[in-house]
Amino acid sequence: MNDPRPDTPDTPDAADETVTDGDLAVLATQLGRTPRGVVGIAARCPAGHPLVVRTLPRLDDGTPFPTVFYLTGPSVVAASSTLEANGVMREMTERLTVDEELAAAYRRAHEHYLAEREALGHVVEIDGISAGGMPTRVKCLHVLVAHALAAGPGVQPLGDEAIVRMAADGLWDRTRCTC
């Protein structure tokens, strides 16, 4: 199957994770609070607004924070919530128990996530724990979608699948700004 996700999204320098004061202001509006632990914008919409932030594994107040990729774009957050409400997480978890290839790819995504977080610092309290239910179940599509958007196609299979499903269902399209 061809992946309809663009390999290089039409965004301002997708590899540049620089966080500007403007980004922080947008994030505060998206989140409804002051963003915490932000070290990069890991994915942007085609207009350049933050979709995913890269966060430190330990917040300024000392709290361990396992979610290195945090989904912030309102439209993609809503689309993820809709998929969750429609039972997609349960379907995906069931497939992990019978599809060995998918389970292996999901385990590799878990390892990738851990390596990305470890590159930001070691936090013993969350050592070996990724996010979103990885590596054995699907607990949070928001995390898997954030990981897929940050890492690019082919790293997070269930996040990639959720993004394709969002587009197919008319919930969210990576190639259009809906901010």
Rank of each mutant, 00 (worst) to 15 (best):
S75R: 15
A168R: 15
V76D: 10
D21Y: 03
T67C: 13
T136P: 00
T72I: 07
L71R: 02
T11F: 00
V98H: 14
F65D: 14
T72L: 06
A148G: 04
R176K: 15
R137K: 10
R95G: 03
T175D: 15
V143A: 15
A28C: 03
A25G: 06
L24H: 00
E116A: 09
E94M: 10
V38H: 10
T97Y: 05
P157L: 04
L120P: 10
T18G: 11
F65V: 03
L158V: 00
V123K: 11
R176I: 05
T97M: 05
T55Q: 15
P153G: 05
E161H: 09
V52W: 10
L31K: 12
P135S: 07
L149Q: 04
P35H: 08
L149W: 02
P66L: 13
L56Y: 01
A167F: 06
L83S: 13
Y106W: 15
T18L: 11
E118P: 01
L31A: 08
T72G: 06
W172G: 00
V145E: 08
A15V: 05
A151W: 00
L141F: 01
G132H: 11
T55I: 01
P157E: 06
A47S: 15
S130K: 08
W172I: 00
R58P: 02
E84S: 14
D99N: 12
V19R: 08
D61G: 08
R108F: 01
L102H: 13
V143Q: 12
L27G: 02
E94S: 10
S81R: 14
L31M: 14
R33V: 11
S130Q: 01
V26C: 09
E125Y: 04
L171D: 09
R33Q: 12
V77S: 08
D61S: 04
F65M: 02
V124S: 15
H147V: 04
D13Y: 07
E118N: 01
D10P: 04
A115G: 06
T178P: 06
L83N: 09
A146H: 12
G128D: 02
E116C: 13
L56C: 03
D21E: 14
G121L: 10
Q30N: 06
A109H: 09
R44A: 01
A131K: 07
D61E: 12
A42Y: 02
V143F: 00
R174P: 10
H142G: 08
